[in-house]
Design a protein around this nucleic acid. Structure first.
Length: 656
DNA sequence: TTAGGGTTAG
C-alpha cells in the first residue's frame, strides 16, 4: 500500500492494463511514416509519457520496471522529461526510491532542476532527509540553480522528520535565494513549522507572507485546532475571505477533535447554508461530533447526512468507522456490528472502533474474538489504540490472565510499545480484580513516568476495594498531575467515608475548599420519542411529574424487596443516619430517570438512561432487579461505559 | 506545488 493511497483510500484497487500501449510502442519505429528521426523520437516520447501516466492510478514495482525497460529499449533513458516523469510516478505510488533514482538519472546527460527536484521530493516524502540533502548537494555541484519546487521539497523533508533546526536553515536559504517567490513555498514553510511543533514560527511566516491563498489559511487553522487552540482557529477562520470546503472541514473536525461537538455541528450547518457541499472527511467529522453527543437523535441526523451525500458505510471506510464509533457511544452496539459487517473494506480504525465498542458494552469475549480474528485472518496490523480497546475489554470483565498475555504480546509480537495509556488499562485491570499491591508494583516498573491516568486508575480501584492506604499514595501523585479535577478529591473522600474515617473526609473537604473547587452535581437524563431531553438532579423534586415519579419508586422498592433488595447504605458517603441514607439513595438521579421512563414509555421499548458520573452499587442492584420485575431492557450509560440490564442480570456480570 | 481525516484509558 502506498503512502498516497493509504491516506485517501476508500475505493477498490483498479487493475491497470499497460499491454495496449506497450504494443503500440513496439510497433513504433517499424511502421512509422515519419520522415525524420526527431519526429519518431517525439512520438516515442509522447507514447512513453502516456504509458507512464497510466501507472499513475495504481501499479506495482514490477510494472514500473517493465515500463522502464521500454524506456531503455526506446533509447529514452536520456530524456530528462521522461525520467522526471518516471521518478514522479515512483513517488506517487510510494515505491521505495533506492536504488532507483541514482541508477535512473545516471544516463541523463542534461539534468535540469525539475529532474533533481523530483528526486529530492521523492526522498522527502519517504522521510529520507539525508538522501534529499545529498541530492541537493549533487544538484548544486552541477551548478544548477534550484527552483521554488526544490525548496518546497526540501522544506517538506524537514517537516516529515520534524527537524526544526534544519527547517530553519532551509527557510533562511530559501529566503536568500528566492524570497517569497510563490505562495506554495510559503505554504510549505508553514507546514514545516507546524509539523516541527513550532506554531509561532508558522504564524510569523503567515503574517509576513505578501500573498496568501486559502491553503495558507487552512494550514494554520488546522494547526491551531490540532493543538487545541480553537479560539485562534475560529478567529483566523472568520477573517478568511473566501472559505472553501477544506477550510470548513478543518473547523468541523477541529471542534470535533477538541470535544466541542455542538460547535462542530454549528459550523457544519453554517457550511451547508453558505452553499458549500461536504465531502467524506467533513461528514466523518460531523459523525464524530454526533458520537460525542451520545444521543440517538444525533445518530439519526448523522445517518441522514451520510445518506444525503451518498456515503454508504459499506463503500466508505472512514464513514463506516465513524459510524461504528457513533452507534457504540449512543448505546446501539447492535447497529455498530451491522455497520461493521456491511463494510467491504476494513482497516485498523474499523477494527479498533468495533473492539472499543464491544469493550464499552461489556462484551469482552467478542472484543477478544474480533482482535484474534484480525491478527490471524487479516493483514490489518493492530496499533496503540487497538490495544487500549482489547485491554479495556479485559479490565471491564476481570480477564486478568488474558489481559496480561496481550500486554506482554504487544511489544513481543506486534512491535507496539506500551504507553502510559496501556499501563493505565493494566493498573485498572489488576486494581479492579482486587490486586492493588500488584498494581502499585506495576507502576513502579514503568519505563516512562506514570501520569494522572495511571494514578487515577489506581485510586478508582481503591474506591472499589476500599483501601485507604494505597489510595493515599495514589492520591498524592494524582493531585500533583490533576490538581483541579474535583472528581479525584471526591473519590478519596469517599474512600475515607467508607472506612468511617470522618477526619480524613474533613481534611479532603478542606483541601477542596482551599482550592476553590466546585463539586460537579450528579445528573441523569433521558430523551423522549420527540427528541426532548429530560434531566434529573439529585433529590430534585421540581419535575412536573415528581409526585408520580416518587410513587412509582415507592412501589418499585416494594416489589424489589420481595426479590431480596436491601438498600446498600454503604453507597452513601454522607455522615447521616440510616433513614437519611435511604432517602438519599431513592432519590439518586438514575432512579428518578428510570421511574420517569417507566411512566412515559411503552412497555416493549428499551429504556436508555445517561449519567454524567459513575453509577453507585445500590443503583446497579436496583436497575438489575428492576429489569426483572418490569420485564424491561434498561441500558444505562455512566461516565465510563454502558450497562445492559435484562431479566435481572447485567451485561457487566456485576464486575465493573 | 501547497490544505482538511474516523478509533484512546482512570
Amino acid at each position: 500500500m502506498t503512502v498516497a493511497h493509504s491516506r485517501r483510500f476508500s475505493t477498490a484497487v483498479k487493475p491497470i492494463d499497460i499491454s495496449l500501449l506497450s504494443k503500440q510502442l513496439l510497433q513504433l519505429g517499424r511502421t512509422s511514416n515519419s520522415d525524420t528521426f526527431s519526429e519518431i523520437s517525439r512520438q516515442r516520447e509522447q507514447l512513453v509519457s502516456s504509458l507512464i501516466s497510466t501507472l499513475d492510478d495504481c501499479a506495482g514495482l514490477n510494472q514500473i520496471k517493465q515500463v522502464h525497460g521500454h524506456v531503455i529499449r526506446k533509447g529514452l533513458d536520456q530524456s530528462c522529461y521522461i525520467i522526471t516523469k518516471l521518478i514522479r510516478t515512483l513517488t506517487k505510488l510510494g515505491v521505495p526510491m533506492d536504488p532507483y533514482p541514482r541508477r535512473v538519472i545516471e544516463p541523463v546527460q542534461f539534468r535540469n532542476p525539475f529532474l533533481w527536484t523530483a528526486v529530492i521530493r521523492g526522498y522527502a516524502i519517504e522521510g529520507n532527509i539525508l538522501e534529499a540533502i545529498s541530492m541537493y548537494g549533487c544538484m548544486r555541484k552541477e551548478w544548477i540553480t534550484p527552483v521554488s519546487f526544490t525548496f518546497s521539497a526540501l522544506l517538506k523533508a524537514c517537516g516529515s522528520v520534524r527537524d526544526l533546526n534544519l527547517g530553519r536553515q532551509f527557510h533562511a536559504q530559501t529566503f536568500r535565494l528566492r524570497g517569497f517567490c510563490c505562495v506554495y513555498v510559503g505554504n510549505t514553510m508553514i507546514d514545516m513549522y507546524v509539523k516541527c511543533g513550532s506554531i509561532d514560527c508558522a504564524r510569523k511566516v503567515f503574517d509576513e507572507m505578501p500573498e496568501r491563498d486559502v491553503i495558507t489559511w487552512t494550514e494554520l487553522i488546522a494547526a491551531y485546532a490540532r493543538v487545541g487552540n480553537m479560539k485562534s482557529a475560529a478567529e483566523l477562520f472568520e477573517s478568511l475571505p473566501s472559505k472553501d470546503m477544506m477550510a470548513w472541514t478543518a473547523m468541523v473536525t477541529g471542534f470535533a477533535q477538541n470535544a466541542k461537538p455542538q460547535e462542530a455541528l454549528e459550523y457544519f450547518n453554517r457550511m451547508e447554508k453558505s452553499g458549500i457541499q461536504a465531502d467524506e472527511v467533513t461528514v466523518a467529522g460531523f459523525i464524530s461530533a454526533c458520537a460525542q453527543l451520545g444521543a440517538s437523535k444525533y445518530a439519526d441526523q448523522a445517518v441522514q447526512i451520510a445518506q444525503k451525500y451518498g456515503y454508504s458505510p459499506s463503500d466508505h471506510v472512514v464513514i463506516g468507522s465513524a459510524l461504528i464509533d457513533m452507534y457504540s457511544k449512543c448505546g446501539n452496539v447492535e447497529e455498530a456490528v451491522n455497520v461493521f459487517e456491511s463494510m467491504k473494506y476494513k482497516n485498523v480504525f474499523s477494527y479498533s472502533s468495533m473492539i472499543l465498542g464491544f469493550a464499552m458494552h461489556g462484551r469482552a469475549q467478542e472484543a477478544l474474538d474480533l482482535f484474534h480474528y484480525m491478527v490471524t485472518h487479516t493483514a490489518v496490523k493492530p496499533n496503540t489504540v487497538t490495544f487500549v480497546g482489547v485491554l479495556t475489554a479485559c479490565s471491564h470483565t476481570g480477564l486478568v490472565d488474558q489481559g496480561r498475555q496481550i500486554f506482554a504480546s504487544m511489544h513481543q509480537m506486534f512491535g507496539v510499545e506500551p504507553t502510559r495509556d496501556h499501563y493505565t488499562c493494566m493498573v485498572d485491570l489488576l486494581g479492579r480484580a482486587g490486586r492493588l499491591q500488584e498494581s502499585l508494583e506495576l507502576i513502579k516498573t514503568m519505563s516512562v513516568e506514570p501520569h494522572g491516568g495511571v494514578w487515577g486508575a489506581l485510586l478508582g480501584a481503591c474506591r472499589i476495594h476500599n483501601n485507604p492506604d494505597i489510595a493515599e499514595i495514589a492520591a498524592k501523585h494524582l493531585f500533583e498531575w490533576e490538581p483541579d479535577i474535583i472528581g479525584n478529591y471526591i473519590l478519596l473522600s469517599n474512600i475515607y467515608a467508607s472506612a468511617g474515617d470522618w477526619d480524613g473526609v474533613l481534611s479532603v473537604r478542606k483541601l477542596i475548599k482551599k482550592k476553590g473547587l466546585k463539586k460537579t452535581p450528579a445528573a441523569s437524563w433521558v430523551v423522549d420519542k420527540n427528541g426532548q431531553m429530560h434531566k434529573f438532579f439529585p433529590g430534585n423534586m421540581n419535575h412536573p411529574m415528581s409526585n408520580k415519579i416518587q410513587k412509582t419508586l415507592e412501589e418499585l422498592v416494594e416489589r424489589l424487596t420481595v426479590l431480596g433488595y436491601k438498600p446498600d447504605l454503604s453507597s452513601v458517603t454522607y455522615d447521616v443516619n440510616d433513614d437519611g441514607k435511604r432517602l438519599i439513595l431513592i432519590r439518586h438521579t438514575e432512579k428518578l430517570a428510570l421511574a420517569f421512563s417507566l411512566l412515559t414509555t411503552s412497555r416493549d421499548s428499551t429504556i436508555m438512561i445517561m449519567k454524567n458520573l459513575r453509577m453507585c452499587q445500590d443503583c446497579h442492584t436496583f436497575m438489575r432487579l428492576a429489569s426483572e420485575v418490569t420485564g424491561r431492557v434498561i441500558i444505562m450509560r455512566d461516565n465510563m461505559r454502558f450497562h445492559h440490564f435484562r431479566s435481572g442480570s447485567c451485561s457487566c456480570g456485576d464486575f465493573w
